[in-house]
């Protein structure tokens, strides 16, 4: 009993640095702008108001921007899953010449920060006439550096599946593609969950690429839209920005709450071996 109380105590204390900033974000969005930077910050809005939330939709095509972020993240997630599960399966379970060297080459992309390649990528897409479209935001994550992490996770997962699977599949007369599709992929559900969460969040939070590639408000994504709420003198309208930030964060959190149990336990049952 005492041990339990102690554990709860430790967990509660550890929670503080995680929860306080989120709490501040949400409560500040309910405060008038002059109260937000009061020091020390107040825990509850003295005069709560929903004005900022109304302005979020009034000042920007926010619903459209929300949709942009949502569909881009969804397309990127599905595309990344397709590319990375195929590659991960091949790297883990098919013997072909140079597979280790190729994997190592691809792995390099994992550690390249986007600041390094943004200018050449911009020139590339500009010469293809694709700036101010969503194509760069979709193609780069699916095929470029961000998908490498996904391939890596998928490979580690497929490595952990028992060898006998392929033999059983061969006995059933399944080809390579069928083995992957009918056996590998269904078993990989937890890894798919992990990759989906990583990929979705990465796309959802992407900041540098949208501000460089997009210039029409109707095509903006959420992190970029947040920076657009400024007053008549170019000063940030903090309450509106924070309201928009809260609206951006909450749905993802809800999805996590719903999906986490299956995701964690699924990964636990099947494991992630290296």
């Amino acid at each position: 009993m005492r041990r339990k109380t102690l554990l709860y105590g430790v967990l509660c204390v550890l929670c503080v640095p995680f929860v306080f900033p989120t709490w501040w974000m949400v409560t500040s969005s309910l405060k008038p702008v002059s109260d937000i930077f009061a020091f020390p910050p107040s825990l509850l809005p003295g005069r709560p108001q929903l004005e900022a939330y109304r302005q979020v939709f009034e000042l920007q095509p926010f619903a459209q921007q929300y949709w942009n972020s949502l569909y881009i993240a969804a397309v990127v997630t599905v595309g990344t899953l397709a590319v990375s599960s195929l590659a991960g399966w091949a790297f883990a379970r098919i013997r072909f010449r140079g597979s280790n060297a190729l994997f190592l080459v691809i792995l390099v992309g994992l550690l390249i920060p986007s600041e390094v390649t943004i200018v050449p990528l911009f020139r590339l897409f500009h010469s293809a006439g694709l700036t101010d479209t969503h194509w760069p935001l979709i193609l780069i994550p699916i095929l470029g550096a961000p998908s490498v992490l996904a391939t890596f996770i998928m490979r580690q997962f497929f490595l952990a599946l028992p060898k006998e699977l392929d033999e059983a599949a061969a006995v059933d007369g399944l080809g390579r593609l069928a083995t992957f599709w009918r056996i590998g992929l269904p078993l990989a559900r937890p890894a798919v969950g992990a990759v989906a969460i990583f990929t979705f969040l990465h796309s959802w939070n992407l900041y540098l690429e949208p501000i460089v590639f997009l210039s029409t408000p109707e095509r903006f994504t959420l992190p970029q839209a947040l920076t657009q709420f400024v007053d008549a003198y170019g000063g940030p309208m903090w309450n509106v920005q924070l309201a928009a930030a809260s609206l951006t964060a909450l749905p993802v959190l809800v999805v996590f709450v719903v999906a986490q149990k299956q995701f964690v336990e699924g990964l636990a049952h099947t494991g992630l071996k290296g």
Partner: peptide
């Protein structure tokens, strides 16, 4: 056949890396 299937499976990732990672790195 394994080699071919293997290359086919990693082709999207590999071409993507060439186009969006190594080509930009070469330009850099």
């Amino acid at each position: 056949r394994d080699h071919l299937v293997g290359y086919a499976f990693v082709a999207p990732q590999l071409l993507g890396s060439l186009l969006f990672v190594f080509l930009p790195l070469g330009l850099v």
